[in-house]
């Protein structure tokens, strides 16, 4: 352990330190430096999760366009198109609000995971927040776990509110069997995870934080139109259905329909089946591809910086 060599000479300066006094430890601080235990990954990840949640709910744009958006859309669509007992599908048909709920649930999952992370990370990178974090002993994994944790929590709260709104305000019958809720759980977790890792990977695409929402929002919007969220999937032209099948939102929405629609509605699916295996396969594929791309392309600094 080295001792402090007095620096050559201290130039005299103002000596008033009333506002700038830092307490010095009685012991030689360097003697103990580098020996204290580094905080555990779990502890830092939890601190990150809490901070991310705080940040998210204080950002008005995020709260409106990510958190509240599906709730607002459900309220508007169910009110407008559900008038006079309108139904979807062959007789007796499914009440419009009930048909619309799974689409909004799927949209909520995508917004809270994909759109949230693609935008927030692009902005953090642009503003220098990521670079600042990289210069600390925060384990990089804690950053991603914090993002995941906050996404899962915001998304879960969003689901509770969305399903609650559907049930209480629009009288949608909620599933009563455990296997339905089990389906909900795996589609939700897999969809959120896939959306989150894809959001991390996609955050490197926008050239700047300011352009991020201009790049991300249209993609999300187009997916909503072609994936059976705003329109009944069966009513879409076949080619559009084929395009939508490439992206996860269609599968998320279909998986959620299998949770919230009555059993007879399965026959009304384009394929005549809920296709749970295909849904799981597509979501896992996005999870893996997003993870690989995210790990390979993630940058803590702006593109024009190092």
């Amino acid at each position: 352990m080295s001792t402090t060599t007095p620096p050559p000479e201290h130039t005299a300066g103002p000596t008033d330190r009333s506002t700038a006094e830092l307490t010095t430890r009685p012991t030689d601080r360097r003697a103990s430096a580098g020996t204290g235990a580094l905080p555990s990954l779990a502890r830092v990840s939890w601190a990150r999760t809490v901070l991310e949640l705080r940040q998210f709910f204080r950002e008005r744009d995020a709260v409106v366009f990510i958190f509240a958006y599906p709730l607002i859309m459900l309220a508007i669509f169910a009110t407008v198109f559900g008038q006079g007992g309108a139904t979807v599908g062959p007789e007796p048909g499914i009440p419009f609000a009930q048909y619309f709920l799974p689409g909004m649930v799927a949209t909520g999952v995508m917004l809270s995971s994909f759109q949230n992370l693609a935008l927030s990370i692009a902005v953090e990178r642009d503003e220098g927040g990521l670079k600042r974090l990289r210069g600390t002993p925060m384990p990089p994994a804690a950053y991603f776990l914090g993002k995941m944790g906050s996404v899962l929590l915001t998304s879960a709260i969003q689901m509770v509110l969305l399903i609650g709104l559907g049930s209480l305000a629009f009288g949608i019958d909620l599933p009563s069997t455990a296997d339905r809720w089990l389906t909900f759980a795996w589609v939700f977790v897999l969809g959120t995870a896939a959306g989150a890792v894809c959001g991390v990977a996609f955050s490197s695409v926008p050239r700047s934080g300011r352009s991020a929402s201009a790049v991300v929002t249209p993609i999300v919007l187009v997916l909503q139109f072609i994936s059976g969220v705003f329109f009944v999937f069966n009513d879409l032209p076949t080619w559009m259905q084929r395009v939508a099948e490439v992206f996860p939102l269609k599968w998320l929405a279909q998986g959620m329909r299998s949770v919230f629609l009555p059993e007879e509605a399965e026959a009304f699916e384009v394929s005549g089946s809920w296709q749970h295996e295909a849904t799981a396969a597509v979501l896992v594929a996005y999870l893996v591809v997003g993870l690989v791309l995210g790990v390979r392309t993630f940058r803590w600094q702006r593109r024009d910086d190092g």
């Binding site: 580094l38 940040q55 220098g128 670079k131 600042r132 210069g135 600390t136 002993p137």
Partner: peptide, 21 residues
């Protein structure tokens, strides 16, 4: 590594992050 980083302090040129905290 992390241990090394814990002995450093870095103040970068400019940052306008974390505005809502």
């Amino acid at each position: 590594d992390r241990r090394w980083r814990s002995r450093l302090g870095i103040v970068l040129q400019s940052a306008d992050d974390q505005a809502e905290l």
